[in-house]
Design a protein around this nucleic acid. Sequence first.
DNA 1: TAGATTGTTAATCGATTAACAATC
DNA 2: TAGATTGTTAATCGATTAACAATC
Lengths: 217, 217
Amino acid sequence: MLLKKMMLASRATVDRLPIYYRSLKEAMQEGIEIISSEELGRRIGVTPEQIRKDLSSFGEFGKKGVGYYVSELKRNIGEILGLHKQWNIAIVGTGHLGWALAHYRNFSEMGFLIKALFDVDPAKQGLEIDGVAIEPINKLAEVVAREQIHIAIVAVPSEVAQEMTNALIAAGVHGIWNFAPVKLVVPDNVSIVNADLSAELATISYQLVHRDATQKV
Amino acid sequence: MLLKKMMLASRATVDRLPIYYRSLKEAMQEGIEIISSEELGRRIGVTPEQIRKDLSSFGEFGKKGVGYYVSELKRNIGEILGLHKQWNIAIVGTGHLGWALAHYRNFSEMGFLIKALFDVDPAKQGLEIDGVAIEPINKLAEVVAREQIHIAIVAVPSEVAQEMTNALIAAGVHGIWNFAPVKLVVPDNVSIVNADLSAELATISYQLVHRDATQKV
DNA sequence: TAGATTGTTAATCGATTAACAATC
DNA sequence: TAGATTGTTAATCGATTAACAATC
């Protein structure tokens, strides 16, 4: 096994890695020790060539004529994604969406830990979710520093999303997952991913309207 | 203005259309009547060439030397996305995530209406969100037919996601938005979009780990 | 008219698919 | 060994960017 040094992988490749990772985790739980790109691809709906190409951006993880050792490949992809590190997450805004994300069980499958919650509503302050107390916004800098927050989930109204983002970045956060339907401006050294729920739903509407045209024969 | 007949637009283009739509809606509220691809692009972080190219898949919507009439372009993109139609949405699973989506205010910005809610938990049945009652799963077919549901949001545990999806499709649903971290198998004439929350979060982890490599100079 | 801005064609860049040598 | 399967190179396909003629 040879790790390529800081290979540049495409956005599309990186988007698929967590899917590989999860599927390998499941295969492990089924007691499968060796898996081929063919079988992995079948499980997640990706071609075996695509998987092999994706992996080749980072190194050689398989054995020719054999396949991939499940636990080894899972560990390697985990390291590529940085899942071997501990990531502390904060959620800003505990409305319905923030509340749901604070309770979301599947983040732990990737090893993410929710360590801080913030909300403007004084009525919510002190309230706990899984042992994490909801803090007021004026404690944001303090708590982000204390809990060593790396990534923040922005789940506040659009009007205040940029302001919260600025405060988070000033406090040392380097990754933002934005659920507000607004374009956030962040410095180059901060990573941002947008989760635009109504925009995604609109693409389904498009597909339904153009179903006949879109459909494969 | 000339509408191209059923032009085939790329996935990437379709993903951007809702962003254009929302930004035009905002411009309209600001009282702006004419907008250039330059200004629209500046607002949402897309190059003007990209916007013009995207729109050209569907027709000619602007005036050379002038720009786009905001309300006209908004209407046209709305029609391309199918937002002029009424889409009835069902949510299957009213756990934290389903509950949050049932309360999500921004779906209405695109004209989507939540018309049905389902949950296995008998304790929840009869409970209402915005006047829509939570129904048991055994009423799924009946309620989907009665409320003429077009699109379903699957927010149930992975173990039962495929089963629920099958029931929804059998009941006449043609679009599925899947929040369960599992690959769903659907017939060709059904559109499916996956919202894989922990996978998305893992891409932020990747970016943080590879920050130095990823960063633009 | 002159300046501005679209719509489209051509050039470039990037991602996927196909093919196959290497090798377990 | 023969069969299987990887890793990689080449070919294809698709999307973005650049350039510019058309025209308001």
